[in-house]
Design a protein around this nucleic acid. Structure first.
Lengths: 348, 348
DNA sequence: CTGAAAGCGCTTACAG
DNA sequence: CTGAAAGCGCTTACAG
């Protein structure tokens, strides 16, 4: 493995010049640059990242805690998210370092240790939960991070985040079903304790009201995110005095439960009842009829996350008051989801 | 951030002694060790990993290429695999570095670059395909790696691997269905070009023959891994002169197709027809009746992968012939899957 | 535009 | 059992 010194000897310049050829080529005279470049190629030189990191104290690695699901629930779009995150990181010549940690506050020493030992420059948080304690902790420790998802029900959001406007997504689903002629639209949700669920529910509820549709008795709470729960809630909605003809589900799994219950009753999704899911997970395109679903723009999410985390202005360190940049708009980004329309919401 | 030098000054010893306290504590006198340990804690010292890596030229990072699925197919157990891999790596104080690369030979410069720049010590390969070119390439470059999955149809496997005995898994599924009284058992497979598929099919076929069951016309080839394909193949198996009463599917998605077709015909999985899947993906426990499925032992797979990759004996470098260790048995490990029995294969 | 030199924070033979 | 010193491969003020 060639070193800077060997390249310098080969090109008959100093190591400083080779380093500049790599990191600040404009400082070299064209002919020198070319000679150095040729030596680099000839010797197949690749700068040792550890030496660079030691010197600059920047490792260009971003930590991401792989979620564990003791309840057996899977993160069905995790591979999409990770792929997008990696790609976004690589456009800034960074990479993702994976690690595991206990959930909640208990896991924070792991974060702190990774940062202290300089294995990572900062963190991307996801699986953000209502009252998630990680954000505040990291902020207090002045460890750089950015969150995918908001910490709900706090007075102020600790630190920067990127999130998807779930309310707008659900409202779009309601309007889509309305346009297909549906007038009695139910909502399959999770327990009230979830800020995420309340946000999405408000989108359904507001859109219904705006369109003059009743919401009374049509918001179902599913304790677990399973097909059975979705099917049970759907059964209730169908057995009501005024049976629903449209269902907006807060997840693809609950929507699959709706499809299953319709199927059991000899009804066809997209014909008698329109159904939509959330996340556009692999499940959505694999069932028949395929599931209309609200897709989170993963590539954009990842790009924004990396952009915020790697932004040169680290506000906390230097003068926080004299800064002209509007703080909120640059570190709190709400993206619009996309309704992917398939057979479950419309015939054909 | 405290450094080794500061700790040494605080404990009134040399830096060498502090380093030894961390890496070879047995070399210190107990009282010295205790004094140093106290200083380390007091100053909240954490060794800088970059400095260590630069010196030892071992980064303790393992590269893993996140699969991309242009065809929209998801890796439904990827989060399980990644979690297991991270956990296994962490027990040896290593971590996983994620990256993306083009598929096939085109992606190899990315692997080479990551290794040359010392971002990783080696690689874990998964999504191994029939005739996968990566293994041979890495071996030739003498870049350490270990594969989850075999390169099928090569005369010799290039490099170490861990894999699951798919044939044994499918044979176990057949015997399970046989024990539940099934006598006409079909198999939902993929195209013949897949070595993985042929291996699993052979397990089904051998077990059937051993039990005196006919296999004729009962192996179906599904071009895509979708519910529709599985449903179509199941329809054929049910419409045959001798309709099947058991179905072993090569994937959970195809098994879901079988369930869907049974459902459409008013048949119940586990009652009229027993159905089994492969992978025990999140899909399996989310459907109703829940899917019996062949589970790959992810934790064990991950442990073996890390074990092989981090084994101190790097045979290729030093004397390859004079080694007493049997090469095959230590670097080629075939693990047994587990049949997870649920409602789709047996009533109740 | 180019070069000699210091230093990032560790580990490791080598002496004592 | 402990210490002084060299060196891993870079980057970066500082001179020329």
């Amino acid at each position: 493995m060639a070193t800077l010194k060997q390249v310098a000897a080969h090109a008959e310049v100093s190591v400083q010049t080779v380093s500049n050829a790599l990191n600040a080529p404009h400082r070299l005279r064209p002919d020198t640059l070319q000679r150095v470049t040729k030596s680099i190629e000839l010797l197949n030189y690749r700068p040792n990242r550890n030496a660079r990191s030691l010197r600059t104290s920047a490792v260009e690695l971003i930590g991401y805690c792989v979620p564990s699901w003791p309840n057996g629930q899977a993160h069905l779009v995790m591979d999409q998210f990770l792929h997008a995150l990696c790609t976004a990181a690589e456009t800034t010549s960074r990479h993702i370092l994976l690690f595991t940690a206990p959930v909640g506050l208990e896991g924070m020493p792991v974060y702190e240790d990774l940062h202290a030992r300089r294995l990572v420059d900062g963190f991307v948080l996801s699986q953000t939960e209502t009252h998630d304690p990680r954000h505040g902790w990291l902020k207090e420790q002045e460890i750089p991070f950015v969150s995918f998802g908001r910490v709900w029900k706090e007075t102020t959001q600790p630190g920067p985040f990127v999130d998807v406007d779930g309310a707008a997504g659900c409202a779009a689903a309601v309007r889509h079903l309305y346009d297909a002629g549906r007038r009695r639209i139910g909502f399959l949700s999770w327990p009230k304790s979830s800020g995420l669920a309340e946000d999405r529910l408000s989108g359904w509820s507001d859109a219904c009201k705006q369109l003059g549709l009743s919401t009374s008795g049509r918001a179902m709470r599913c304790v677990d995110d399973t097909i059975d729960e979705g099917a049970g809630a759907t059964a209730e909605l169908l057995d009501a005095t005024e049976p629903v003809d449209g269902i907006v589900a807060i997840s693809d799994v609950l929507a699959l439960g709706a499809l299953s219950e319709l199927n059991r009753r000899g009804l066809t999704a997209g014909v008698e009842v329109g159904v939509t899911g959330f996340d556009d997970s692999p499940l959505a395109s694999v069932v028949s009829p395929a599931l209309t679903s609200i897709r989170q723009p993963m590539d954009q999410i990842a790009t924004e996350l990396i952009d915020i985390l790697t932004a040169p202005t680290r506000r906390s360190a230097d003068n926080p008051d004299a800064d002209p940049t509007p703080a909120r708009s640059s570190t709190e980004r709400l993206l619009q989801p996309e309704l992917v329309i398939r057979g479950s919401s419309a015939p054909g």
